[in-house]
Every structure is written in C-alpha cells, then in structure tokens.
C-alpha cells in the first residue's frame, strides 16, 4: 500500500471535513431569526441581547467569525456552550466515549447475530429457516428504531424487570438495552447482505472445485466461501456505520443514555448553537474517519487489491 495512496486519502478526508465544517458554520449563521434572541427567550432586554452577542462575537462579520472558528478548531477549541457555560470540547469529551462504546457493542452484537444468520440462511436456502429469516428481516426493516426501542424497553425493563429503566446501575447494565436496540436496527440489513453475498459466492466455480477436492462442507463454507463473501460485507458494514451514528441518537434518547446523541438533542431544544455545531462536527468526523479507515484497510482483506497496489 503506497504512501501516495494513504496520503491522498488523508487529504481527501481533510477537505471533506473542511467542507462540512464550513457548511455547518455558515448554515448556523443563516438560521432564520436571531439566535441570541431565540436563546435568551422573549423576556430578554435589548442590552442583554447586545451583551451576549458581543460575548459570542456574533456582531463580527461572517468571514471573521469563520476564520476564528477554524483557528479555534485547530487548537481544539470548539466554542463554549451557552446553556451549560462550559467549553464544548469538554462536554463532548465526556459523552463521546460513551457513545463510542454504545456503537462498538452494538456493532459486535449485530455482526455476531447477522453474519451467522445470513450464512446459515444462504447455505440452507429454501429451507424453513431461510424463509423465516427472510420474513423476519423484511419485517424488521419496517420497524422504526424508536418503535423497537420502546418495545424492548417495555418488555425487558418494565414487564420483566431485567434491566434498569432509568439511568442507574453500572455502565454494563445501562449499555445492554440500547446496544441491543441499535444492533437490531442494523442486523437485518447486514444479515440480508451476508445472505446474498454468500449465495453469490456459493454458486461460484471455485466452490465446486473445493468440494471436488473432497473438503468437508464445513471447510468449504468457512474457509472458501465465507472469506470471499466477507469482502463486500466489510464495506457494507462500513457504510452501515452511518446508520449506527444516526440510530444512536434516537436510541440514546429512548433509554436516556448519557451519550453524545442525548447531548445534541438537548442542545437543539435549547438552541445552543455552539454545542450543536460541535456535536455535528464530531459526528461527521467520526463518520468520515471510519469511512477512510474502511477504504484503507479494504486492501488488507482483499488480496486482489493488495497486490495490485
């Protein structure tokens, strides 16, 4: 994998990020109505409004604010939250790791269920299991994530009090239900993808060759078929990451999980623009970094790309 390739990817990422920052920043500047007025509420006096405006530097021309924000960004300064009166960076640094954990656990759950299910469904095509899987995934795709979350909450926390309803208990406890919800959100799509990828692979000539050599069916599926099938699944899962991020916002809200999603939603209620900006930025950065990672490591799993580089 050449240095040029990596370097160009990094540069591309950086540019995309810059574009997103700019769009976020500029669009917040274009919010209809006066953000300060909206923030302080209808009872604020003119002096108060002017004061806050000055404090936040909102009376400066747009391009100066833009540059200021960017330079601040480079120093790790994401602005200051109006609502909490704390640096945005600080707030995010508390909640972001929690969201990452949530997504990571959800990803693990999701893959652990979806891939085996997809494989079995493909290998036992036309069986009752296959039809059940296809039916379930079809239904599951139609259930909005919050509906599922609520149902899960109801069943497992209310009806059968396995998990805590509120945010008490250790991290392990509070992460399970949201992670489960989030994983169910993406699992059907991944299972479907796995199934169709496996079906494609199993039809290939090299699988017949493997069988003709006398390999056990298990070996054929696990060693020959799956390795090939996993390649598109890898990229697909990477694309799914975006879904995870968006879904995490809703999931956190349902379970009152103290992650970045909850923070951002609250910031939106409060019209806390610096905080909103910061959250969006961090979300976008995560998303872009993950995509970049997938792009770069894709070469590692597919030897055809590896050697061609």
């Amino acid at each position: 994998m050449s240095f040029r390739f990596v370097a160009s990817k990094v540069v591309q990422t950086f540019i995309t990020l810059l574009i997103i920052v700019s769009i976020v920043m500029l669009s917040l500047a274009m919010v209809p109505g006066d953000p300060v007025r909206l923030m302080l509420g209808p009872y604020a006096t003119e002096e108060q409004i002017q004061l806050v405006r000055e404090q936040l530097g909102l009376n400066l021309p747009l391009h100066i604010r833009y540059v200021r924000y960017l330079t601040g960004l480079l120093q790790g300064d994401l602005g200051r939250s109006y609502h909490y009166d704390l640096p945005v960076a600080e707030l995010i640094s508390i909640v972001y790791p929690r969201t990452l954990w949530l997504v990571a656990v959800a990803l693990i759950f999701s893959l652990s269920i979806a891939i085996p299910v997809g494989v079995i469904s493909a290998v036992r095509q036309y069986s009752a299991l296959d039809y059940a899987v296809r039916f379930l995934t079809y239904i599951a795709v139609c259930i909005p994530i919050f509906v599922f979350g609520i149902m899960l909450l109801h069943l497992l926390a209310v009806r059968i009090p396995i998990f805590p309803v509120a945010v008490v208990g250790s991290t392990t406890e509070i992460i399970v239900l949201p992670a489960l919800t989030l994983s169910v959100y993406s699992a059907p799509a991944i299972a479907r993808m796995t199934r169709s990828s496996m079906l494609d692979v199993v039809r290939q000539d090299y699988i017949t060759t493997a069988r003709a050599k006398g390999l056990s069916e298990r070996r054929v599926i696990l060693k020959h078929a799956l390795r090939n099938a996993l390649i598109p699944i890898y990229t697909y899962t990477g694309l799914q990451f975006g879904l995870f991020l968006g879904g995490s916002i809703i999931t956190e809200t349902i379970f009152a999980y103290p992650g970045m999603g909850t923070l951002m939603v609250n910031a939106i209620y409060e019209r806390d623009y610096p905080l909103i900006q910061g959250c969006v930025l961090v979300f976008a950065l995560s998303f872009i970094l993950v995509n970049m990672f997938i792009d770069l490591t894709y070469a590692l799993i597919d030897p055809r790309i590896k050697r061609a580089r």
Binding site: G33, L38, L239, G242, L243, G246, V280, F287
Partner: peptide
C-alpha cells in the same frame, strides 16, 4: 454523493436543528 453518504438521520436532525423544531 456527499449528501447521500451522510447518515440520513443526522442530516435530517441537523436541518431541523437549524430551522427550529
């Protein structure tokens, strides 16, 4: 393409955040 690659929920939430709920 760049709009499409962005997580849809995030995009939609962001727009609403800007315009007001």
């Amino acid at each position: 393409d760049s709009l499409l690659s962005f997580p849809y929920l995030l995009l939609v939430i962001l727009i609403v955040a800007l315009l007001g709920p």
